[in-house]
């Protein structure tokens, strides 16, 4: 019995949320608010789980050696001061420490990970015995450099009356290559986005709807009624 309810509920919630693309309706809003509540409750629960295994369990097990773990717990609890009109600034101690550690971890490894390694990757031989490799290396270097100019080190050369100067033409060419390089990147991203979104949709079908046609059908009928109701209300209002 419970299992039947579970299956019906899962299928119905999926269809009700999908109904939004046709028209906003009560069943969509119901499913949406169920999502909000369950997601928020879940994230609190799972965070408590993390807190439990990183602080509470060690504290309970050997209180004397792990006494110091009280410090981050207190600092974390300071977050709640943000609701206070007077003492809101106390929360800054918690926010600050979490932010500082997170930024420090990225700050100390980013020069190597994000910059040196990436620059190294472009230092490619431009003449190799293999013509395909040579072409690939040229594409790599030229697109990276021009996109870098387009994105980060943007300078605008002065436009002079009459014939454009050589610097202007060169800069214009670099920008154009940069734009074409990015068009390739965006085209690839858009195509892959389509695959991802379709995959989400298809696998929802495979998991929740196709195995349970009756449940799905009843949920569709319910939501069709809800949409008709919403349309009538919209026309009346």
């Amino acid at each position: 019995m419970i299992e039947a309810i579970q299956i019906w509920l899962s299928a119905a919630l999926v269809i009700w949320i999908w109904s939004f693309v046709y028209k906003d309706n009560y069943l969509y809003r119901l499913a949406q608010h169920i999502f909000l509540g369950a997601a928020a409750g879940y994230s609190i629960g799972i965070s408590l789980d993390s807190l439990n295994k990183t602080a509470l369990v060690p504290l309970a097990k050997s209180p004397t050696t792990n006494m110091h773990l009280i410090i981050p717990i207190i600092i974390g609890l300071l977050f709640f001061f943000k609701y206070s009109r007077r003492y809101y600034w106390v929360a800054r101690y918690g926010v600050g420490i979490a932010l500082a550690v997170g930024t420090a971890l990225a700050f100390r490894t980013a020069p190597m990970a994000n910059i040196i390694r990436q620059v190294n990757a472009v230092l490619l031989p431009l003449w190799t015995p293999d013509p395909v490799k040579t072409l690939n290396n040229w594409i790599h270097v030229v697109i990276t450099l021009s996109a870098l100019v387009y994105f980060i080190f943007t300078v605008t050369p002065r436009v002079v009356e009459g014939r454009p100067t050589i610097t202007y033409r060169l800069y214009d060419a670099v920008l154009r290559i940069g734009i074409y390089g990015m068009m390739v990147a965006f085209g690839a991203t858009l195509a892959n986005t389509i695959m991802t979104r379709l995959a989400f949709f298809i696998s929802m079908n495979l998991q929740y709807l196709q195995p349970y046609p009756l449940e799905s059908l009843s949920a569709i009928i319910l939501v069709a009624i809800a949409i008709l109701f919403a349309m009538r209300r919209a026309r009346a209002g």
Binding site: A40, G41, S43, I44, S47, L48, S50, L51, T54, A55, L69, I71, P72, I73, I75, G76, L77, F79, F80, K82, G94, V95, I97, A98, V101, G102
Partner: peptide, 14 residues
């Protein structure tokens, strides 16, 4: 410490 604090921050989000 920052892992412990982050867990409490997520709770505040809820």
């Amino acid at each position: 410490y920052s892992i412990v604090i982050a867990a409490l921050a997520a709770i505040v989000g809820g």
